[in-house]
């Protein structure tokens, strides 16, 4: 009999880890935020004349709420394809640092890169936030199926929201739709705060909150991209300086 060390006690099969991730998604308050957000997006998509299948395919393929809003609004109002692609691309640039700071947490020295394709595709704000919070308690070998389970769990929540949104479209009172739109900022602010551990995390949050609106007000092109690079580097720099002076 092997000794009951924490690693082999907690070792689960791939399927069990996937289910644990799926369950974690539905136990997270963010699943309900995702449902609410997608009710709003689906109502918008419906009003712009897109079919339900198209809306659901857009969630599976694009999997980034702000990009999906930009996509339907631009296409429905006759935006040029190139300009629309550019606007979607700019809004999704945040996915780059998110994938860069998620994959190193789940890969192992011998991980085949093909198994990281799905976790990279599932990376979106909701999955990224919950993965960063929950992964430290999950053993290395279980992390890839766990993140896939999280991704499928949140995607199912989004599709449930899409169905509800199509059903409710046209009858959504403005007060309710304002409340649904407010879900994103208030839940992201709280869940990002909950994840802050390093000094650089806290600084990046505080600097980003100030810099984001300033860059937008000054009408700097690609304002969020600059907020990330300037704010994130500043936060990291101050963190390093403090460590060096200790």
């Amino acid at each position: 009999m092997s000794p009951a060390t924490p690693t082999n006690l907690w070792h689960r099969s791939g399927a069990a880890s996937f289910l644990a991730g799926f369950r974690a998604a539905w136990l997270s308050a963010l699943a309900y935020v995702v449902i609410g957000t997608y009710i709003g997006i689906a109502a918008l998509t419906h009003d712009f004349g897109f079919g339900l299948w198209w809306a659901m395919a857009s969630t599976v393929l694009v999997w980034a709420a702000p990009a999906q809003v930009i996509l339907v609004s631009a296409l429905a109002t006759g935006g040029a394809p190139l300009a629309t692609a550019l606007a979607v691309g700019v809004s999704s640039a945040r996915l780059l640092p998110m994938v860069m700071s998620l994959l190193p947490l789940i890969k192992r020295p011998k991980t085949s890169y093909a198994t990281l394709i799905l976790p990279a595709h599932f990376t979106a704000v909701s999955v990224w936030i919950e993965a960063l919070r929950l992964l430290p308690a999950i053993s290395r070998q279980e992390r890839i199926p766990f993140v896939n389970g999280l991704g499928i769990g949140f995607m199912c929540a989004a599709q449930a929201g899409t169905l509800i949104g199509y059903y409710l479209a046209g009858s959504l009172p403005p007060l309710l739709s304002a409340g649904l739109l407010f879900l994103t900022p208030v839940s992201f602010l709280i869940s990002t705060t909950r994840n802050c551990r390093l000094t650089s995390d806290w600084l990046a949050l505080a600097i980003g909150i100030v810099l984001g609106p300033l860059m937008a007000a000054w009408q700097v092109g690609l304002d969020l991209l600059w907020t990330g690079v300037v704010g994130g580097s500043l936060a990291y720099g101050i963190h390093r300086l403090r460590e060096a002076l200790k």
Binding site: A93, P97, S101, S200, L205, I209, G212, G231, G232, S233
Partner: peptide, 16 residues
């Protein structure tokens, strides 16, 4: 750690 800071700063900017 730098990539993580950049991701948090972008998200904070989106929220604000």
């Amino acid at each position: 750690i730098w990539a993580r800071s950049v991701a948090i700063a972008v998200l904070a900017g989106v929220i604000a």
